[in-house]
C-alpha cells in the first residue's frame, strides 16, 4: 500500500488524504498514518512545486557541473558531497559512475552568480580536482513532466 500511495502522489502531491483514500479504497486515517510514516522515515522528503521559470519574468540560470574529486579515506565521497550540497545554491548532487565523480546542479540568478560560486566556493575545495560547468539553455521536461507542451484535449466532446 505504501508503494501505491507513493505512485499516486509521485506526479501530483496536491491530492488530499481524502481523495487518496477514495481512489485507493482505504480509510482516511489509514492514508494519513501511512503518509506520516513515510515522512518520518524520510521516504517522502518534501513537496516541491514544479515551476517552469522560463515563463516567469525573472532571470534564473541552471548549470550542471561535472566534478572530479579525491575520495577521502574512510568516508569515500559522502563527506565531500555533503560539503557541496549544504550550499543553498546547490539543487542536486549525484554520485556518478564513469568519467567524473559528482554531478552538481546549481541554480543562480545570473550566470555571473553561478560562475562566482564555482570559482570561489567549489573549485578551491581541497578534495576537488577539476570542474566542468555546463549551462542549461532550455528545459523541456523535468521530473517526468513536460514543461513546454501543454496538453490540449482534442477529443470530440461526445462520442459513443
Amino acid at each position: 500500500m505504501r508503494e501505491k500511495i507513493l505512485a499516486a502522489i509521485d506526479k501530483n502531491s496536491k491530492l488530499s488524504a481524502e481523495d487518496l483514500a477514495i481512489m485507493l479504497g482505504l480509510s482516511v486515517e489509514e492514508v494519513k498514518s501511512i503518509i506520516k510514516q513515510l515522512e518520518d522515515e524520510h521516504i517522502i522528503c518534501g513537496y516541491p512545486t514544479l515551476i517552469n521559470w522560463d515563463k516567469v519574468e525573472c532571470e534564473r540560470v541552471t548549470a550542471l557541473i561535472e566534478v572530479k574529486v579525491t575520495p577521502q579515506r574512510g568516508l569515500g565521497f559522502d563527506k565531500i558531497a555533503e560539503r557541496i550540497y549544504k550550499f543553498d545554491e546547490v539543487q542536486s548532487v549525484y554520485l556518478m559512475s564513469g568519467g567524473f565523480d559528482l554531478t552538481v546542479i546549481i541554480e543562480g540568478r545570473t550566470m555571473r552568480e553561478v560562475a562566482n560560486f564555482v570559482s570561489v566556493k567549489l573549485a578551491p575545495m581541497e578534495a576537488i580536482l577539476s570542474t566542468a560547468t555546463h549551462f542549461v539553455l532550455k528545459k523541456y521536461k523535468e521530473n517526468g513532466l513536460p514543461l513546454v507542451h501543454t496538453h490540449k484535449d482534442e477529443r470530440m466532446l461526445i462520442s459513443p
Partner: peptide
C-alpha cells in the same frame, strides 16, 4: 448520441464527461 453531440458542440465552454475514448 449524434443528436446530443450537435447540441454540445454549440456550447463553446462546456466540459464533457461524454467521450467513449481514452484520454
Amino acid at each position: 448520441i449524434r443528436k446530443f453531440f450537435d447540441i454540445v458542440t454549440e456550447m463553446k465552454d462546456a466540459i464533457s464527461l461524454g467521450v467513449g475514448e481514452p484520454d
